[in-house]
Design a protein around this nucleic acid. Sequence first.
DNA 1: CGGTTGACCAAGT
DNA 2: GACTTGGCCAACC
Length: 104
Amino acid sequence: MESFAERIYRELKKVPKGKVTTYKELAKAVGTRAYRAVGMALSKNPYAPEVACHRVVTSSGRIGGFMGQKHGEKIDKKINMLKREGIEFVEDRVKNFEEVMFRL
DNA sequence: CGGTTGACCAAGT
DNA sequence: GACTTGGCCAACC
């Protein structure tokens, strides 16, 4: 039985490389408005490399809070991964956010 | 079932 | 642009 979280992972896997999506769109894709629950699901992220949690950003084009990461290092590592995929970042924000955002 | 928490969002100040 | 408030939904106790 797939949990709400499992559906999120499935939708997230559909996002192609070099693209990002938002918590809102992801939640809407599974037919809910629980943006926060989406974040919760990713925080558990049992499918670490399979599910590109770093490919999910907020509606502001930012990476998000990421309390799971270190407090001092911020989320630079995730940004670096995204850069490697072709996503441009500027000051912890996605460049051309609307262009790289993949609509489900 | 109720209360708390959470990688959020939108509107108001 | 930054902070505060209210709201949303799911998971856990």
